[in-house]
Write a protein that binds this DNA or RNA. Structure first.
Length: 493
RNA sequence: CGGGGAGUAGCGCAGCCUGGCAGCGCACCUGCUUUGGGAGCAGGAGGCCGCGGGUUCAAAUCCCGCCUCCCCGACCA
């Protein structure tokens, strides 16, 4: 069974060939429904996305994987900047004492800190921590930069690597070192900080995940137990993977005055009084790469939504005869002129089938195949990765046809993922029913039905409360009574 | 840390029990034939068998010690 794959829409093609992309004689990958974790590992390796580094928990992101990450960075970065946030950079090394200033924060991170005790061959006076997150250093500078209310809001983001000594690493999902973006802001009031944290959640993360990654996400509030160490409130975007498990894809925290007090981020307000700033922090990481693979991949490999794909169209020279190569060049040129990201595969010394399988593994959304026969007829074959279809298109109509295929693919991928999530979400009335439903996917449960010991009970069963939603299915208003909230439960990565 | 496995070519593995030339598949190199859904044939390169010690005429194999990695549980983007 090809889970979640749907064929839809009428054939626009002159002729539609009945060739499925899953025709390889021997399975290219372990099928998803046989062993999902194995399938995931296979995709990372065969699509040349990433592999393990030499130190446990470290990752080597290969060029193709990094190209996808760069696309993610670019899309996220422009959304961050549109909120008026500027990029900056703070040090990798943080004095250990900084970590001890906020009680919950220390407690939350102490077990997973990497600490440098020797530098230049000498024992250090004060050990330095390799940043697991940068609240402490950044806020120590915010304290210097913020004097009066006119200095606020202060909105800063950095792209960086961070280190957390994880016990059980998994490529992209949980690593000792990973890449991310972390935003840090300071505001004059609690309401301003809250509004900003929610804007980031919606306008940066949800918008990117839904509109670019084509992954529907549930945006809600974390329970006290699940919230970030040092935060007052943690907001999250939760996605469903194709094995029904949940993945936290991005978070936005309201820090209250938890850091501004110990780091003395204070300012003179309009009335001349001394106030502590209200803060937020928020991040999304290379975990998104894992989410992409697990939410959009199928048994033939990765599937990239066109808006994210570093290569949107690959023009495959089927056979190196006659003027085919020139024809492919000309087609590629026309597609590029129309603004598409295009690559030519002219490696005719490799077999056609081999190359096609490679591009399917890499998830390129549209493949244009050209051989002598097509050239003679003035045609090309347009293959869509998302639904595994092929159609023949006249060369003079190819650019609009490819453009249309990309647009349709983007829409279809989001629809498919949304339908999959709906099919794997169960509305439960009791804790036991919810736990059972989580074997297949998510369960919704009125918070009132979860009860006081409900979170303990589900956790004991390997299930967690992913987030709390308001009546409209979005992040709950802060003053919504608990009785009006819905808990989303699932097994998580 | 608790429990379970594994270290042999780039990757995946066999060989070990019963000591006797270092093997297989994939990948790689060369040549020819191929190329419209993972090509075929022929030839070739590639090894501190995790490390250290011991037994033995002889150790990947038996014995002792050490190291590392992976998987399952408690934390996390």
């Amino acid at each position: 069974m090809r889970r979640g794959t749907r064929r839809r829409g009428p054939a626009r093609a002159h002729r539609r060939r009945n060739i499925s992309p899953h025709m390889a004689k021997t399975a290219v990958l372990t099928p998803q429904n046989r062993d999902f974790p194995r399938w995931y590992q296979d995709v990372l390796a065969k699509a040349e996305l990433a592999e393990n580094g030499p130190v446990r928990g470290t990752i080597v992101i290969r060029p193709y994987g990094y190209a996808i990450w760069e696309r993610m960075q670019s899309e996220i970065d422009q959304r961050i900047k549109s909120l008026g946030v500027a990029n900056a950079y703070f040090p990798l090394f943080i004095p250990q004492s900084y970590f001890e200033k906020e009680a919950e924060h220390v407690e939350g991170f102490a077990p997973e800190l990497a600490v440098v005790t020797i530098g230049g061959g000498k024992k250090l006076e004060e050990p330095v921590v390799v940043r697991p997150t940068s609240e402490t250093v950044i806020n120590s500078y915010f304290a210097k930069w913020i004097q009066g209310h006119r200095d606020l809001p202060l909105l800063v983001n950095q792209w960086a690597n961070v280190v957390r000594w994880e016990l059980r690493p998994r490529l992209f999902l949980r690593g000792t070192e990973f890449l991310w973006q972390e935003g840090h802001t300071a505001h004059v009031s609690e309401a301003d900080a809250r509004a900003f944290a929610l804007r980031v959640l919606d306008e940066v993360y949800r918008d990117f995940m839904v509109e670019v990654m084509a992954v529907p996400v549930l945006c809600g509030r974390k329970t006290t137990r699940e919230r970030f160490a040092g935060a007052e409130t943690t907001w999250t975007c939760e996605g469903m993977m194709r094995d029904g498990k949940a993945l936290q894809m991005g978070t936005s925290h309201e820090l209250g005055q938890n850091f501004s007090r110990p780091f003395d981020i204070s300012f003179l307000d309009e009335d001349g009084g001394q106030s502590y700033a209200w803060q937020t922090s928020w991040g999304a990481s290379t975990r998104l790469m894992g989410a992409l693979v697990m939410a959009q991949g199928d048994d033939a490999g990765l599937r990239l939504p066109p808006r994210l794909a570093p290569v949107q169209v690959v023009v495959v020279v089927a056979r190196g005869e006659g003027q085919v190569s020139e024809g492919a060049q000309s087609v590629a040129g026309a597609l590029r002129s129309a603004g598409m990201r295009v690559e030519i595969d002219g490696r005719v010394e490799s077999s056609f089938g081999r190359r096609v399988v490679d591009w399917e593994l890499k998830g390129v959304p549209v493949r244009v195949e050209m051989g002598p026969r097509d050239l003679e007829r003035g045609e090309a074959v347009l293959a869509r990765r998302q639904r595994g279809s092929k159609e023949t298109v006249p060369l003079d109509g190819l650019v609009p046809a490819v453009h249309h295929a990309l647009e349709e693919t983007q829409t279809a991928m989001l629809q498919e993922a949304t339908a999959f999530r709906a099919d794997h979400t169960h509305e439960a009335d009791s804790v036991d029913e919810a736990i059972e439903a989580c074997a297949e996917g998510f369960a919704t449960l009125p918070l009132s039905a979860l009860g006081a010991d409900g979170e303990d009970r589900v956790n004991a069963a390997g299930v967690s409360v992913r987030c709390l939603l308001g009546a409209d299915g979005g992040p709950p208003e802060i003053d919504t009574p608990e009785a009006g909230l819905v808990a989303i439960l699932g097994r998580a990565y």
